[in-house]
Amino acid sequence: MKTQIPLLICLVAGLFMGLQYFIPAALPVYNRVNDYIQVVTAFSLVLGVVNLIHRHIGRMRPSGPQRRRHRDWPFSLAALVGLVVMLFAGFGTQRGPIFQSLFNSILLPVQSTMFALLAFYLASAAFRAFRVRSVDAVVLLVSAVVVMVGRLDDGGALGIPWLSRQILNGPNLVAKRAIILGVGLGMAATALKVVLGLERSYLGSGKE
């Protein structure tokens, strides 16, 4: 029963979503289902936040035979303080100046910094990876350099921006489309397996 009911729900929902794609008359039901998804999404966030609070409070509480806090408890405290402050700033001021100011002066720079780290990782990864070990590697290296210069305002006289576009729109796109085709079929097959209950590892044990 524990597995059969979820499988039945999955089968019915999967078949409906598959069929509605071909049946205009099913659109109102489909729109209603979409509304339900919004509600489920909102509630799921509560689930995540509860787990977050539970986990971080657990880390801050002394536990174990020596009644010690987890070694990372200051991070947990920072996470909880951040959660509470943003929550009250958001609800308390109706997205007013405090919320916007916290957003602009803390969240925005912190997140931009995280994304900016990519440039550093990219530089070190390129330095390590682009070595002329084989013919394939040479092709990869030359393409990478051409595309990098092609993203700039230079190289027009040498036709590098044109060459860069040719690489991106030619061989690059051909390979991508081949992968997309495979991925699309893989997704469809996986969806079919899940709907028909052939694939049930995601339910836990996968056995009755």
């Binding site: 330095f127 682009f130 290296l141 990098m148 210069v149 993203r151 700039l152």
Partner: peptide
């Protein structure tokens, strides 16, 4: 910035090779 950084990475790739 992007221009200088791209050329720096290219320089490192060349030096590395």
């Amino acid at each position: 910035s992007q221009k200088v950084v791209h050329y720096m990475i290219i320089l490192f790739i060349i030096l590395g090779n």
